[in-house]
């Protein structure tokens, strides 16, 4: 019985983990290139959720089609924020960038609240279910998982097969060297920042496909914290690392729940989160480049 539950939870965790991973790629990309931790990360996920909600509930647009729309909106937001704020803070101490990104998050939350109100919303996209014996999956969850994997692959191709991608890559490795080689470092920064934000907003769409309820302006906070753990699992500066970090995180979170639940007198969910932060600290100490990197 317990084993069956464990198996079911692990499979659920893997699917959820893919979406979590995708939701962290933007954070890792921005950190990798600009060395800026986007503390307002969750707010951008929230924007994606609202894009989906709005498109689905008012125009009846399929959430899958909301992904490119959200991505474009995110790119736009990213460019605006980069040129108004981040550009001037690239060389500033951590303090400034941490506070700036946090404030951007608050700004977005309050704007969305002004437009949509603070109601908890949701949408109901009916596409059927699939029963795999140990657990049941709504198709929407599987689409979210497949979409996430697809986006990770696309990002990989972009990095490795396009000129702009390799320019960004060279900036990650050595920004001074890249400048000497004639690469437009400022442009690469702007592009990666907005790409990161675009990915994050798009991931908001996929997350709502997984959990299509509880959408409200302040929903992002929890995802920011999860994204930190996942990003650290993946080495903090590698977007694909983050994707695999997400898978590992999903497995740990769901797997450890079943085990913690066997202990009497505890709150198992809280302990899974405790565990995830213990893992975060352990990785930061032992191998800050992440458990998946070869370095």
């Amino acid at each position: 019985m317990i084993l069956e539950q464990l198996a079911g939870n692990l499979i659920q965790g893997l699917v959820l983990g893919a979406v979590y991973g995708m939701a962290t790629m933007g954070l890792s990309l921005i950190f990798g290139v600009l060395k800026v931790v986007n503390v307002g990360h969750g707010a951008f996920i929230m924007v994606g959720a609202f894009v989906t909600l709005w498109l689905f509930n008012t125009l009846g647009i399929n959430p899958i089609l909301a992904v490119p729309v959200a991505f474009a909106i995110g790119m736009g937001l990213g460019f605006i924020f980069y040129y108004t704020t981040m550009q001037r803070l690239i060389k500033a101490p951590e303090l400034a960038t941490l506070l700036a990104t946090f404030s951007l998050g608050i700004l977005l939350e309050e704007l969305i609240k002004l437009i949509f109100g603070s109601e908890f919303r949701g949408y109901n996209w009916v596409v059927g279910k699939i029963n795999i014996g140990v657990t049941v999956f709504p198709m929407a969850k599987l689409y979210a998982c497949i979409g996430s994997a697809l986006i990770a692959v696309l990002l990989y191709l972009w990095f490795n097969k396009t000129r702009a991608g390799s320019a960004v890559r060279s900036v990650v490795e050595d920004s001074e060297g890249a400048r000497v080689c004639g690469i437009n470092v400022g442009g690469a920064y702007a592009l990666s920042f907005s790409l990161g934000i675009g990915l994050t907003v798009a991931s908001g769409v996929l997350l709502t496909m997984f959990i299509p309820v509880g959408i409200n302006p302040y929903m992002g906070g929890g995802y920011t914290l999860k994204a930190f753990v996942i990003a650290v699992l993946g080495g903090l500066s590698s977007p694909y690392g983050a994707f695999f970090g997400g898978l590992v995180f999903g497995l740990i979170e769901n797997g450890s729940y079943t085990i913690f639940a066997l202990l009497p007198g505890v709150e198992p969910f809280a302990l899974t989160r405790f565990l995830s932060f213990v893992i975060l600290l352990a990785i930061l100490l032992i191998k800050p480049t992440g458990i998946l990197s070869r370095k």
Binding site: E94, F228, L236, G265, P268, L271, R273, F274, F277, L284
Partner: peptide, 30 residues
């Protein structure tokens, strides 16, 4: 002892981890 070995953003993230971890320990282990 743990976090001060880290610098910059790594330190910031580690300390967030301590704060959240501690809170969840209190809630989780009651």
């Amino acid at each position: 002892a743990v976090a001060l070995r880290l610098r910059g953003a790594y330190f910031a993230i580690a300390t967030i981890g301590v704060n959240e971890g501690f809170r969840f320990l209190i809630e989780g282990a009651r």
